[in-house]
């Protein structure tokens, strides 16, 4: 399985680099989908079938379609012609350096990778699917956060309806 791990990690990283390097926004969007697919495969390798499938269903299948939809309505050629200025360069390097510093700080703490978690599917005995267990956990232990998220989504939906109305009565 280590071979597959490297294969799909490479796919995810390759897609991630593609997002940044490509000048064509459509290519960037497609690279991002590639990266999501690699990530989904990694989840599935960890026996997290539901998370892996949702990664494809929600991110690659729904959100990126909307991204692509918007990008296609833009003038892609103008986007490709746009020059990069020194301000972009400084800002981007600042963010990159901050991120690398963060990663180094976290990794140098020494106890990374030592924790031995049991897989969700192992904890309740073999044979039960991860879907059942995630469902059970969501509606028992974590029912309150689920309710909060549901209300949040409802607020967002109502907000969209209000904003997209041309004139409020």
């Amino acid at each position: 399985m280590t071979f597959l791990f490297y294969l799909f990690s490479a796919l995810a990283l390759f897609g991630g680099i593609g997002v940044v390097v490509n000048r064509n926004p459509v290519s960037s969007a497609i690279s991002m989908i590639l990266s999501f697919l690699g990530l989904a495969a990694l989840f599935i390798q960890l026996d997290a079938f539901l998370v892996g499938i949702l990664q494809i269903l929600v991110y690659a299948g729904a959100i990126m379609v909307l991204f692509l939809f918007i990008i296609m309505l833009l003038d892609v050629r103008e986007e490709q012609r746009r020059r990069r200025s020194i301000v972009h360069f400084i800002g981007a390097s600042g963010v990159a350096i901050a991120f690398v510093a963060l990663v180094i700080t976290v990794l140098s703490r020494g106890d990374i990778g030592k924790a031995n978690f049991t897989a969700l599917t192992e904890s309740k005995g073999p044979g039960t699917s991860d879907v059942h267990q995630i469902g059970e956990l969501l509606f028992s232990t974590y029912w309150f956060p689920v309710q909060i998220v549901a209300v949040l989504l409802l607020v967002a939906t109502v907000g969209v309806v209000v904003l997209s109305k041309k004139e409020l009565k």
Binding site: L50, I53, I56, L68, F69
Partner: peptide, 24 residues
């Protein structure tokens, strides 16, 4: 798979890229 119908929906939702990219 233990997530059969979800898998079908997830993968078939990728079909739209072929059509979108063809059109674009």
């Amino acid at each position: 798979l233990d997530v059969g119908p979800l898998f079908v929906f997830a993968i078939s939702s990728l079909t739209v890229y072929g059509i979108v990219l063809a059109g674009w």
